[in-house]
Design a protein around this nucleic acid. Structure first.
Length: 212
DNA sequence: ATCCCGAGGG
DNA sequence: CCCTCTGGAT
């Protein structure tokens, strides 16, 4: 799929999913950071079910830094990986309090140094809480990128670079959201709903692009 | 059984 | 590249 076909596809997906945005409930960078790490291997609606109680119990990094491991675990148990997540939430809060004066850093290199924060989470926070362009590569973006032929790699870091080269920076954030939205609704992991796909005419999987 | 808007470690 | 961590929905 060439650059022009890709741009056409993005235009149409953006038209189809005009409301595509971050699915996590949050009111500030700290809450978004917490909600995003909880969303690892867990659906966003399940995250949104536990965050109100979590944010009420630990409103900011200072409170979280003083939290007990089992106290946090109890609140986030249903999101899976709760031991790792609880440990990282507390450790991360301490780093934010001690090294960043209680403010979530707005830089990629500083965010990824926080415990439990990888490039995916960092780019979600940068794009949605700080308005800094970042290409989010989650399982959906990864899958669609391969299906549309935008990358041959399986490595998320490599895919991120490929997509950043393919798209202009001012579309990175929205591209992530619309790919995720389309991936969840139509272009699903085990069984894509190709018969009901609104952009199947642009899909290399069906061999239609080549014949145009 | 398989997957979910992942990260860390080998 | 591989593996593990975890619960819940389908």
């Amino acid at each position: 799929m060439n650059r022009r076909q890709t741009a056409d596809l993005l235009d149409r997906l953006e038209e189809l999913y005009p409301q595509a945005r971050c699915a996590l409930c949050y009111r500030n960078p700290w809450e978004l950071l917490v909600a995003t790490i909880l969303s690892a291997q867990c659906t966003d609606d399940r995250v949104n079910r536990v965050t109100p109680a979590l944010f009420a119990a630990f409103p900011g990094p200072e409170a979280m830094a003083r939290a007990g491991q089992d106290e946090v675990e109890a609140l986030i148990r249903s999101t899976g990986f709760f031991r790792n997540k609880a440990r990282n939430l507390i450790a991360r809060a301490r780093v934010i309090v001690e090294e960043y004066g209680g403010e979530v850093p707005a830089r990629l290199d500083e965010l990824v140094r926080l415990p439990g924060v990888g490039r995916k989470t960092a780019n979600v926070v940068l794009g949605n809480a700080f308005g800094i362009p970042g290409m989010v590569v989650d399982t959906h973006v990864k899958r669609l990128s391969r299906r549309f032929g935008w990358t041959k790699s399986q490595d998320p870091d490599r895919i991120e670079k490929d997509l950043c080269r393919l798209f202009p920076a001012d579309r990175w954030v929205q591209t992530g959201h619309i790919l995720i939205t389309h991936g969840r609704a139509v272009c699903k992991a085990p069984m894509p709903l190709c018969g009901a796909c609104p952009v199947s005419d642009l899909c290399p999987r069906l061999g239609v692009v080549k014949s145009r």
